[in-house]
Amino acid sequence: MHIGASGLNPSLTTSIQSTAEKIASGKAVNKASDNPAAIQILQQFNSQIQGESAAFRNVIDGISALQTAQGGLSQVTDSLQQLRELGIQAGNGTLNSSDRDTLQAQADQLIEGIKDSLNGSTFNDRSLLNNADDIQTQTGSEADQQQSLSSFDLLTEFEDVGLFNLDFSLDKINDTLTNIDKALDITQRVNSAFGAEQNRLGSTANTLSNSILNQSSSRSQIEDADYAELISLMTKQQLNRDVEIAMLGQANANRSQVLQLLKT
């Protein structure tokens, strides 16, 4: 180590500044010069964690969309069960025309309610009950990590099975009950699909959460500062600086003495 009379060793000053920066930031690596290899690894961790965090939010939104659709589907199923009950009542041959008109009016109201539920069950203006196109969701940090949320055009499917043209006349009750049962079969199929997709997304969310946690822990092991080690290092560096200052002071004093002797 060379110590000149002109000043302190610049490398020691730089080391002290670097150690102080690490203590202040709580990070062992603040810039590329601290540890070039570690910086590259940290950048990879950061990219992966950020990507998976965004994917995790996508998955949670997907689960919320499915839950919204299932809530609307539950309302539709309840209305279909009420329609079926009305249909069975309409099969009573002792009803007069006024009674049958009342049942028909109640059924028409339930059908309008079903349409409202299908049109109103949306998440962020997207519907899984009144939309024929599946929704793609990015569920990972890589380009090919996607899952589809199944969408169903239930208005069309219900129309196809005659749900919106129910006739509660006594001679039409068999057809009416058959059409309602077909609609109930549709809701069971759709509900099963939503349940399976929600389970799959739930599993994906758990996988992403564990991956983010593990990678964050690994990143911390590289990035986080060891305060005890840094404080010990700072103490040694400051001691070396004090020694340098003392030696520099002595060197300057000796130089002054030599100059004084030369003048005499």
Rank of each mutant, 00 (worst) to 15 (best):
Q67E: 12
L233V: 11
N240C: 07
Q106M: 12
V76M: 02
T176S: 15
T77H: 07
T137R: 01
N130E: 04
S121C: 02
S25C: 13
T137W: 01
K236S: 15
R241Y: 14
I39C: 04
D144Q: 15
T176Q: 01
E159S: 15
D160C: 04
L230N: 11
A69R: 01
T235I: 07
S211V: 07
S216A: 09
T139M: 06
E21N: 13
N199A: 13
M234P: 10
Q237R: 11
R241Q: 15
S33T: 07
Q67W: 00
T207P: 15
R219P: 03
A69F: 00
I63D: 13
A38G: 09
S151Y: 03
S117H: 09
L83Q: 02
A143E: 05
L259M: 12
G113Y: 00
D144A: 15
S209I: 06
E244G: 05
K182E: 11
V59E: 07
S11M: 12
S25L: 04
S18K: 11
M234Y: 09
N96G: 09
I49E: 05
G91E: 06
Q70C: 01
I212T: 10
S97L: 02
L42W: 03
Q104M: 07
K236R: 13
N191Q: 10
Q67Y: 00
S217Q: 12
T19L: 08
N35Y: 01
E85W: 11
S148R: 04
E223H: 04
V76K: 00
S141A: 15
D34G: 14
D61S: 11
K172I: 00
S220K: 03
Q70N: 11
G162K: 06
L201Y: 04
L129R: 10
V76W: 08
F168C: 01
E197D: 08
E244M: 13
S15C: 03
D134H: 07
D108H: 09
I63E: 07
S47L: 10
A20W: 08
N46F: 06
A38M: 06
D226H: 03
I114P: 11
M247H: 09
A20F: 10
S117Q: 00
G202D: 07
L230R: 03
I180E: 02
G93S: 13
A228M: 01
I114W: 03
S6P: 04
N30K: 11
Q44T: 08
L163F: 06
L213M: 13
N179K: 10
V243R: 15
S79N: 12
Q43A: 11
I245S: 10
S192N: 08
N210L: 15
